[in-house]
C-alpha cells in the first residue's frame, strides 16, 4: 500500500514547464532520492510535497488524504534545507524544540524530546550554543533533529550535504541513513550527486527536463539504465556508435560485438552501445566483444587505473584494478580490451 502518492503532478512557472506529469508511489518507511541535474525539477517537486509550491495540476496523497491544497504548516512534513535554515536567534535546544513549542506541547515534554533528539545526533553538549557557534556539519545535524522532533509523517531533505566538505559529507550521509532506518521514517532526498543517491536510497528517481527518466533501485539504475540520459548521468559510461548486423550482433569499428538484448532496429542501421569503464577488461583469448585502440592517457587513481583508448575514432575509458604484479599500460601503445556481452547496453534515445 502506497503511503505517499504523487499523481500526475505538474508545475508551470508562467509558460515554463518545471515539472511535467510526475507519477510516483512511495511506501511507508522508504528512502527515495530525486536525482538529476540543475533545473530538472527535483527541488520543485520536493517543494510541492512540502506545500511551498502550488500544483498546477495533479494530486499529492499522503496516507490516503489528499494534501494538495493543505498549507505547509498543516502537513506534518519535516524538511531539512541546503542552507540549514536554523533560527539564528535561538539556541540549539530552542531550534530543536521550536516545532514542539508551536504545537503547544508542555515544557517537560519539549525538554525531554529535545534531549532525545540531541542524543540521536550526538550533540547533547551543545544545547546552549547558537547556530553561528557551530560548524556546518553540526548545524545540519541540528536541522535534522529539529525536523524529526515533531515525528513528521514524511521527511524531506533538499540537498542537505551539498554545502559541506567531502569528509563531513560522507559521515553525515551515513548518519542520515542510520537515523532514517532506526526511525523508519518515509524520506525523500533531493540531490544531484549520484554517489549520494546510490549510497542512501531504496529507490532513485532520475529526472530530466521536468520528467521522470527512470525509477528503480540504485543497482537497476546503474546496471540497466533505460535511456541515454540516465546512462550518461549515472556513473561514467562509454557510448560507442555501432551498426546493426543482426538481432544479436552489432559492428563496433571492425569488431563484431555480441549483445544479449534482441535488437529491433533494421540491419545496417546505427545504434548506440554503452559499456561501463570498469566492465572492460584487458583482452584474453576467451573474452568476447574485443576492441583494439591506442592508449592516449593513463591516470593512476590508487585502487584503479583509468586508461583512455582511441579506438576507431571513438574515445573509450577503461578502469583496471591496480595490480602491482602487472605493468601499467604505456601511452601510444596498442591495447585490446573486451567485455561480457551481458554488460553491453543498447541505448534508447
Amino acid at each position: 500500500m502506497s503511503f505517499l502518492v504523487l499523481q500526475d503532478v505538474r508545475k508551470l512557472f508562467g509558460s515554463t514547464v518545471a515539472v511535467a506529469q510526475f507519477d510516483l508511489e512511495i511506501t511507508r518507511g522508504e528512502f527515495v532520492s530525486f536525482l538529476g541535474p540543475s533545473g530538472c525539477g527535483k527541488t520543485t517537486t520536493l517543494r510541492m510535497v512540502a506545500g511551498f509550491e502550488q500544483l498546477t495540476a495533479g494530486k499529492i496523497i499522503l496516507d490516503g488524504v489528499d494534501i494538495s491544497a493543505t498549507p505547509p504548516n498543516k502537513r506534518n512534513i519535516g524538511m531539512v534545507f541546503q542552507s540549514y535554515a536554523l533560527f539564528p536567534n535561538m539556541t540549539v535546544a530552542d531550534n530543536v524544540g521550536f516545532g514542539l513549542m508551536v504545537a503547544g506541547r508542555s515544557k517537560n515534554e519539549i525538554k525531554s524530546r529535545v534531549g532525545e533528539m540531541l542524543d540521536l545526533i550526538a550533540m547533547t553538549d551543545y544545547t546552549a550554543r547558537y547556530p553561528y557557534q557551530l560548524s556546518g556539519g553540526q548545524q545540519q545535524r541540528v536541522a535534522l533533529a529539529r525536523a524529526l522532533a515533531l515525528q513528521p509523517q514524511v521527511l524531506l531533505l533538499d540537498e542537505p550535504l551539498s554545502a559541506l566538505d567531502a569528509q563531513i559529507r560522507d559521515t553525515l550521509r551515513q548518519e542520515i541513513r542510520e537515523i532514517q532506518r532506526r526511525l523508519g521514517i518515509t524520506t525523500i532526498y533531493v540531490t544531484h550527486d549520484q554517489q549520494e543517491a546510490m549510497a542512501l536510497s531504496d529507490r532513485i528517481v532520475v529526472m530530466s527536463n521536468g520528467r521522470v527518466a527512470q525509477v528503480g533501485a540504485p543497482h537497476e539504475i546503474y546496471n540497466a539504465p533505460r535511456t541515454r540520459f540516465v546512462a550518461s548521468f549515472v556513473g561514467t559510461l562509454n557510448i560507442l556508435t555501432a551498426t546493426v548486423v543482426d538481432a544479436l550482433n552489432v559492428r563496433v569499428g571492425e569488431a563484431v560485438w555480441h549483445v544479449t538484448a534482441g535488437l529491433t532496429q533494421a540491419v545496417g542501421s546505427t545504434v548506440e552501445c554503452a559499456v561501463r569503464p570498469e566492465l572492460l577488461h584487458v583482452a584474453t583469448p576467451e573474452l568476447p566483444n574485443q576492441l583494439t585502440g591506442i592508449v592516449q592517457d593513463v591516470v593512476f587513481l590508487g585502487a584503479t587505473v583509468r586508461v583512455t583508448l582511441l579506438a576507431h575514432g571513438q574515445r573509450v575509458l577503461v578502469d583496471l584494478f591496480n595490480d602491482a604484479t602487472h605493468a601499467i599500460p604505456q601511452i601510444n601503445t596498442a591495447m585490446t580490451v573486451g567485455c561480457d556481452p551481458r554488460t553491453v547496453l543498447v541505448l534508447a534515445e
Binding site: A50, N73, R75, I77, M79, V102, R146, A147, L150
Partner: peptide, 8 residues
C-alpha cells in the same frame, strides 16, 4: 519555510 514546515 523552515518555520512553516515546523507547523508555525
Amino acid at each position: 519555510e523552515a518555520s512553516q514546515s515546523l507547523g508555525a
